[in-house]
Simulated assay, not measured.
Amino acid sequence: MNISNTRNLRKINQEKIINALINRDACTKNELSILTGLSLGSVNNIVGDLLKSDQVIESGYAKSTGGRPSKHYELNSNYSKNLCLSIFKNSNRIHLVYRVYNLKDEILMENRIAKPKISIEDIYEILDSVLEKVENIKVIGVSIPGIIKDENVISTGIDDFNEINIIQLLKEKYEQKIIFGNDVNTAAIGFYLDQENYEDICLLFQPANHCAGVGIIVNGRMLKGMNNLAGEVQYLPIDLTDNMEILLNSKEGHEELITRYTQSIIAMLNPQVIGICSTIVDDYSNIKENLNNIFNKEELPELIKIHDLIEYIMWGINLLCKDSLKSNLTITKKTII
């Protein structure tokens, strides 16, 4: 085995130890060996390295069973932190929501700002302020509307943001790792994490006055398509009763749009569950009745009303931040990219 492969294997094994500690308050080395499948010798060496780098700390002793009690080790959850920012547009306002998470997903700081218009300076101001106050932020994750292609964000629907390369600007300005995600896709990740019994899910977001977007996860994997166009329902050849702009001006119009989009999702993907977020339609009974007239009852997925899309967005972008630091990604209920 060459040096590069040895280093990579060591990093992977370190991640196994860290992941085991993320899910438990504290472990002995024997327990870590059982949880990770690593030999006790490997665990001893890796824990020693993690103690030196301050990623792991000692936390007392396990209960004695007659012999010398074993030491407990736990994750230093503040060794690495993620700064997550959601740029979210609905109606005529842009919502800037930011949080700092530690390795155990604890929220250390958060705030929400709503403005009719934003500029790149608003983004700088938020990031600079948080970075000045909080140490050990390793990753900055940004969720934004639009299509992300070749590190460019297009069709954001936000004034002036289609004219700049926001990803490049942030990477040039900040030393932290920069992660970007489409807002509906990151929300779909958060929604997926909340659905313990489903592996095939879709999330439909119908804004008040813009075209809808869909996030798709099939068999636990995010479906983005060749050019990240998967879920851009604006391109569907749907037969509507009126012009899109007119339909967006009424509750009945929103119900028609959601029904048509949901019908297309069921016909093409047939997911187990569809989460629907709409600020205009409060009751989905008409939509369900319309779908019952099209599909057999057993063909219909569960429809779940989503009240707070931003919460799911924050969960999703935080997960992408955590996964960006891993060298050997495995798609699980906690890992979707």
Rank of each mutant, 00 (worst) to 15 (best):
R93W: 08
N136D: 11
N152F: 10
N136F: 00
T186Y: 06
C84M: 12
I94P: 00
I126P: 05
V142M: 02
D200H: 11
E172T: 12
T156S: 14
R112M: 12
E196C: 10
I118R: 00
C84D: 06
G213I: 02
N92S: 13
K115P: 06
K104H: 01
Y192Q: 08
I154L: 15
Q176Y: 07
I123S: 05
D105N: 15
K173L: 10
D150M: 13
V142R: 02
R93P: 04
E106C: 11
I166F: 03
G146F: 02
F88R: 04
K171N: 15
I147N: 05
N197D: 14
K171T: 10
P207I: 01
K115F: 08
N197K: 15
L193E: 14
G157F: 02
I137P: 01
L103H: 00
E121V: 06
K173V: 05
I179Q: 06
E125M: 11
V134E: 10
F161I: 12
F191K: 00
V153K: 04
N136Y: 05
Q176V: 07
V184K: 02
D159A: 14
V153P: 04
A208M: 12
N82E: 12
L96W: 07
D105Y: 11
G157T: 02
D160I: 09
F191A: 01
H210Y: 08
K89W: 03
Y124L: 12
I154P: 08
G181N: 13
K177W: 04
V139K: 00
Y98N: 15
C84Y: 06
I120Y: 13
Y124R: 14
D122F: 07
N111W: 05
I87F: 08
K89N: 01
I94G: 02
C211T: 03
F205C: 03
R99A: 12
C211F: 14
V214A: 09
C202K: 00
D160S: 15
